[in-house]
């Protein structure tokens, strides 16, 4: 007879974090999304996973450079974030929308925070799914941008992306707690940095445990996915085994897969390589495999771009979820 025991060391559940607020909770979302709550590695027989994985699709507040096969899907809405968001929910089955306010970067358009906040309002009007709000990644400007955005989104329980060690995370954290939002704790492929930032958010900024999601960084397939996978897997195992600084749900910038040349280049730059085949098929599967790998490491939420990738990743993760 075959017999194997369950893992007794996995005794600490992952924190549940709910995003979005319905009218019952003072928001205007049709539904909420709950991440986390796991008692085991994902899809393992040791314990049922309480919530499925979710996909939030990227929307930008200005046209950006994108791989051709991604761009094709958004040509008609690229100048209108609200329409873009609608399309992602209506046609591509996005569970959530991430609005990236990249035009606020002083090196791009330096859009004032106040104006950027209007885009957030438009997106909240356009769709009724929970949303994530991202800055431009500029550490000087982001706190201000996220503060404004948090203010106009009060009551909607958005996820603010992101607090990180290289910017004034206290301001971002305060914007989240003041207006009832959750915060994305983003570090770069380093488990100790992740612990440090989470600790600071909890102890120094008093962010409640149910309002922290982690982004430990996603590196694409062939471009450091080995680091990203093991980093996430270690974080999740440590959480399950009781490290209270790491028991949070995780999010992945799966879109990073489009940075890998295998996903966007027309053909191999190397003559010795076998034919790479059509990039329209190569790109989406690059994003899918990158996401799926991290799903198996314990990632809960995926930030993605290509409709086919979203469809396949949702189908496979729901199949494994059961």
């Amino acid at each position: 007879k075959f017999d194997v025991s369950k893992m007794s060391e996995w005794a600490t559940p992952i924190q549940e974090v709910t995003l979005g607020a319905t009218s019952a909770d003072g928001g205007s979302r049709k539904n909420t999304v709950t991440l986390g709550g796991e008692n085991a590695l994902p899809y393992y027989f040791d314990a049922e996973m309480p919530h499925r994985n979710y996909v939030t699709m990227d929307v930008f507040d200005m046209p950006i450079s994108m791989a051709k096969s991604v761009k094709e899907n958004y040509g008609d809405v690229i100048n209108d974030p609200a329409e873009w968001a609608k399309k992602a929910v209506r046609d591509f089955n996005a569970d959530m929308i991430t609005i990236h306010l990249i035009s606020t970067d002083p090196l791009i358009n330096d859009t004032p925070a106040r104006e950027a906040a209007k885009v957030v309002e438009d997106v909240l009007q356009a769709v009724d799914v929970p949303i994530v709000i991202g800055g431009s990644g500029n550490p000087q400007k982001d706190p201000e941008v996220l503060e404004r955005a948090a203010e106009v989104a009060e009551g909607e329980r958005v996820l603010l992306a992101s607090a990180s060690l290289n910017l004034d995370y206290e301001r971002v954290a305060k914007a989240a707690t003041d207006y009832g939002h959750a915060v994305l704790s983003w570090t770069q492929l380093e488990i100790n940095a992740q612990k440090e930032l989470n600790r600071k958010l909890m102890k120094q900024c008093n962010v409640p445990r149910d309002s922290i999601v982690m982004d430990p960084t996603t590196a694409a397939l062939g471009y450091g996915l080995d680091y990203a996978y093991s980093n996430m897997e270690r974080i999740r195992l440590a959480g399950l085994m009781g490290d209270e600084e790491l028991t949070f749900p995780m999010s992945s910038g799966t879109t990073n897969a489009w940075g890998a040349r295998e996903s966007w280049m027309k053909e191999s730059p190397l003559k010795q390589d076998s034919d790479w085949g059509p990039r329209e098929y190569r790109g989406p599967i690059w994003e899918i495999v990158t996401g799926l790998t991290l799903a198996l490491a314990g990632n809960d939420m995926f930030m993605m771009m290509h409709p086919t990738s979203v469809q396949v990743l949702k189908e496979i993760t729901q199949t494994l979820y059961g």
Partner: peptide, 9 residues
């Protein structure tokens, strides 16, 4: 190739 490349990677 769009199947083999991700499998190898």
């Amino acid at each position: 190739p769009y199947a083999l490349m991700p499998q190898l990677h």
